[in-house]
Design a protein around this nucleic acid. Sequence first.
DNA 1: TGCAATT
Length: 289
Amino acid sequence: MAAPATTGCLTFCSPSLFTKTTTPSIPIPKRLLSFSFPTLINFHYPKLSSCCSPSQTARFCSVLAVVEEEAVVVEDEINREDNADGNEVKDDATVQESKNRARPCELYVCNLPRSCDIPELLEMFKPFGSVISVEVSKNPETGISRGCGYVTMGSINSAKNAIAALDGSDVGGREMRVRYSVDMTFRKRNPEALTSSPKKTFIYESPYKLYVGNLIWTTKPEDLRNHFCQFGTVVSARVLHDRKGGNNRVFGFISFSSVAERDAALSMNGTEFRGRKLIVREGVDRTEP
DNA sequence: TGCAATT
């Protein structure tokens, strides 16, 4: 039997996080999740086995987190003691922690070709918003992909868009499935859970939103994002198609991380984008209740 | 290598 791999790579986003995770009591953060920090630090763990139990190591060697732009650690499950008998005894704190594990932007991806790895997955999801993390589940002994993985997006909106665009699409001859990830701790293999959407609605778009009209038919969210990122951090980009009543218009919404960025982007009104004069004005907030 | 898979 091949020895389990002992290397992994985690990307951190702030110095304090880095410091915290390198203390002996909390050797490795289990999860990387959303929201902004300014600094990205790459940190490699050459010897996971020296600070984790074998089972924990096995879990970890199948995970490689790729973090772009923003992230923060919210859990340190790896530090939890293994039960000596191997029995699943969960204390109240553990149960509570799992219940609190709201991951509305995390997607479960399956039916991937075994050859599909993190960079390829990242490329597929990037057009739909900032990608917080990409993981591919692998057999720790063989290192071969299990054909499924997790992609955490930076917003519910980008998660939704990614599902809409990517679920059922062809990846290497297979029909890739993209669903919201669900916590399997309490409801193992519940088929309904596969189609469930997050209970909690967080922020779909930032309040600093603009309407962008008069787009050409082929405009994609990433085109909008690329065009407007010169003004700062694009939180979300959406493109809508309206062909009702003889209309054939394409418009979109773009949101920024600050009012200053939003205001700067207003200057695009009347400018040309792919042969058409853009209409850019303040977006009406129609966030769902 | 696969028709279900959940870190």
